[in-house]
Amino acid sequence: MESHVHSPPIVRDDEQVAHIPGEGLAKGLAVTMRHMLRKSETQQYPEVHPDLPARSRGVIALVEENCTVCMLCARECPDWCIYIDSHKETLPAPEGGRPRARNVLDRFAIDFSLCMYCGICIEVCPFDALFWSPEFEYAEYDIRDLLHEKDRLGEWAATVPPPPAHEVGAEPPKELSAASRPAPARRTAPPAPANRPAAGASAAQEAEREPAAEPAKSAEGRPRREPPRAMRDIRSIRPPGSLPKKNGPSSPEKKDGPEGER
């Protein structure tokens, strides 16, 4: 018995496949209705502001009071987009002191057309003068207007969010744990018996009772200086003048007679 395999019909270019009228329109309306019943993910900005994370890198804010003009942020910036100018000011000397000189900040500007938002300036600042702010609405029509001075950077400091709280069950900072730790109790010496004087008091009383030894005087009446301890030890071991003679060839003894006179 022979088996016959039915192959799909071959559609030629000149032949047209029959379609149901309005089939494409129905598919499009079905997709539209399916998305209309879902919750919308689009936020109508600027009427609805986005809910940004706390550590969003929007813009760099400046706290002018903390800046000491150390120039560390300007030197470490890879784009060289931070410009700082300052002058020295002499403070009056306090009582018993000398006048001090400090740097006063005149200009602090950041060119955000060059900034690549790496955050190195914020990390290297040792005095917490720079912070990340989630503010991002500072677009300009002219690129030259993206150079913002310290007044504008100081306004953005008010938009810096507070640091996030610790997770539940996390260890507190070492500073707080050390401050809350009770101070160790000091050990006190046991009181001395009433009928027995203290060791320090008895030694002091005996020292007062004994007369002070008078220093030895020389023949001229002046006090004699005692030799150092090392010299005293040597003299106690071997008095002066008793050192052995050096080993050498013995001298010949004199003989009586004409041979000795030679």
Rank of each mutant, 00 (worst) to 15 (best):
M1P: 06
M1L: 08
S3V: 11
V5I: 11
S7V: 03
V11M: 08
D14C: 07
H19A: 10
H19I: 08
G22D: 08
G24D: 08
G28R: 13
A30F: 04
H35P: 00
Q43V: 13
Q44D: 14
Q44S: 10
P46L: 10
E47T: 15
V48P: 00
H49A: 15
P50L: 12
L52K: 15
P53I: 01
R55C: 05
R57L: 06
R57F: 04
E64L: 06
E65A: 15
N66R: 12
V69A: 13
C77H: 03
P78Y: 03
P78D: 05
P92C: 04
G97T: 02
V104Q: 12
L105E: 02
R107C: 07
D111K: 05
S113A: 15
G119P: 02
C121E: 00
I122D: 03
E123I: 11
E135L: 06
F136C: 10
I143L: 09
R144E: 14
A157F: 01
V160H: 02
G169F: 02
P172E: 13
K174T: 13
A178G: 06
S180Y: 05
R181F: 01
P191S: 11
P193C: 01
R196S: 07
P197I: 09
E206L: 13
E206A: 14
R209P: 00
R209N: 07
A213P: 08
A216P: 07
A216H: 01
E220S: 01
R222F: 01
P223S: 01
R225Y: 00
R235H: 10
R238C: 10
P249D: 10
K255S: 12
K255D: 06
R262P: 00
